[in-house]
Amino acid sequence: MEAYLFVHFKEKKSPDGEQVYFALSTDGFNWEQVNGGQPVLWSEKGDKGVRDHTIVRTKYGKFYIIATDLSLANHFDGKYKGKWENIVRGGSKYLSLWESDDLLNWSEQRMIELGDEDFGFLWAPEVFHDLMEEDYVIHWTSALASNHFEQKSIYYSRTKDFESFTKPQLLYRKEDSGVIDSALYEENGKYYRFVKSEDNPKGIIMQKGTSLLGEYETVDAFSGEMAKLGSSTYEAPTAYKLSNGKWCLMLDFFGVEGEGQGYVPFVTDDIESGLFIRSDESFSFPYRFKHGTVLSITMEEYSRIKNGY
C-alpha cells in the first residue's frame, strides 16, 4: 500500500458535520481534503447523523464504513433533552453501515443492531480482521441496563460477511472506571489495545497481550508519555503503520471549543515500546479531523477517490 484514506466526521454545531468525510495522504503525514471538504456520504436514517467512523477492507474485496448513529446537532436539545444521560440510556441503538467495491460507489445506508434491549447505546465501532478465525471482530462501547448504565465497557461481535453477527460478548471491563473508544492492532504476533479510561487514570491507556481476546497488561512507558501532556482531554485513539515501519497514533483532543480541537499525531519507532511522541510539526491537516480511522490504500485507489469526488 502506498497511500492512506482517513474516514472521519467534523465537530460542528450544524448537522453537516456529523456525516462521512474523506481525507487523503500519500505519506500519512500531509493530508488533503476530499470533495472540497464536503461530506461524501450523508446519513438518511436513524438520527440522520453519524460519528466515530471506522472503515475496513475485507479479504473478499468489499469495503465497509461503520459508524455510531448519533446526531447532537439534530437531537441533543430535543430528543435527548440536553442530557448525555438520555443518550446513554436510549440513544444510538444501531450502527450505520455502508458498503462499496471501489471506495467510490457506496450502497444505501443500512442499520445494524448488534445489542439487545439490555444495551443502552452502541458507540465507536472498530473492526479487527482476525486471521486466526478468518472473520471480523466488531468491537464498540456500551453500558447495560442490567448494570444501571453505570460502567461503560467494550463489547464485541463476530461476522464473516457483515450480514449476520454473533451475540455480543464482553471484551474489556476496567474494574475502577468506565472505558470507551477501543482500537485494536496486531504486530509481530502481539496484540495492542488503546482505550480511553474515564478515571484512574483519566485519558488514553495502552495495553498489550499475546492473544486477541485474552489478558492484556498496561504499557507503563505509554502512560508516562501521556502524563507529560498535562491534560486528559484526549479520546478516540486510532493508529496506522507508516511506510517507514513507524506507527502513528492519532488522539482526538477535545480540551477546547472550536478551532483547536481535533486529532493530534503521536509517532513511535516501535509500537512494542509504547513510546509515542507528539509530532505536530511533522504533520499538516486542512482542518482538524474528528473521531475516525485510517485505511491503507493503493495509489490507484488514491487517484480514483481524488478524481472521483
Rank of each mutant, 00 (worst) to 15 (best):
156 Y>T: 04
84 W>V: 02
275 L>K: 15
106 W>N: 11
18 E>L: 11
65 I>R: 03
97 L>E: 13
269 D>K: 12
162 F>A: 00
109 Q>M: 10
272 E>A: 15
94 Y>F: 12
234 Y>E: 00
217 E>G: 03
222 F>Y: 15
8 H>W: 10
56 V>S: 10
108 E>W: 03
227 A>Q: 12
180 I>P: 00
50 V>E: 01
185 Y>G: 07
145 A>G: 15
117 E>V: 13
212 L>C: 11
193 R>Q: 13
230 G>H: 09
209 G>N: 12
96 S>K: 07
220 D>K: 12
33 Q>D: 06
168 P>T: 13
51 R>V: 00
243 S>I: 05
300 E>L: 10
273 S>M: 14
41 L>D: 07
147 N>M: 13
94 Y>H: 14
107 S>W: 14
156 Y>I: 05
308 G>F: 13
89 R>N: 09
223 S>T: 11
275 L>C: 06
189 G>V: 11
300 E>T: 13
77 D>M: 10
172 Y>Q: 05
299 M>D: 13
14 S>R: 10
81 K>N: 12
40 V>T: 08
89 R>G: 11
40 V>S: 04
277 I>S: 09
256 V>E: 14
162 F>Q: 04
180 I>S: 01
94 Y>G: 04
224 G>R: 14
73 A>I: 04
26 T>Q: 15
76 F>M: 05
303 S>N: 15
74 N>D: 06
46 G>K: 04
2 E>I: 04
78 G>F: 05
251 L>V: 11
259 E>I: 03
166 T>R: 09
173 R>D: 02
44 E>I: 10
86 N>H: 14
211 S>V: 14
115 G>L: 02
173 R>N: 12
107 S>L: 11
111 M>A: 12
242 L>N: 12
38 Q>G: 00
45 K>A: 11
18 E>Y: 08
137 V>C: 14
105 N>P: 02
72 L>A: 08
178 G>P: 12
227 A>L: 10
185 Y>N: 08
215 E>I: 10
31 W>L: 07
122 L>I: 14
138 I>Y: 07
252 D>A: 04
106 W>G: 11
165 F>P: 14
271 I>L: 13
119 F>T: 05
101 D>H: 07
124 A>K: 00
239 A>P: 03
294 V>G: 08
141 T>M: 06
155 Y>Q: 06
283 F>S: 01
34 V>C: 12
229 L>P: 01
250 M>T: 01
75 H>N: 13
48 K>S: 09
217 E>D: 06
135 D>W: 03
42 W>P: 01
287 Y>V: 03
188 N>E: 15
260 G>W: 01
271 I>W: 08
8 H>T: 13
149 F>N: 04
269 D>Y: 02
67 A>W: 00
278 R>E: 07
246 K>N: 14
291 H>S: 08
12 K>H: 10
28 G>K: 00
95 L>Q: 09
215 E>C: 06
27 D>K: 05
177 S>K: 11
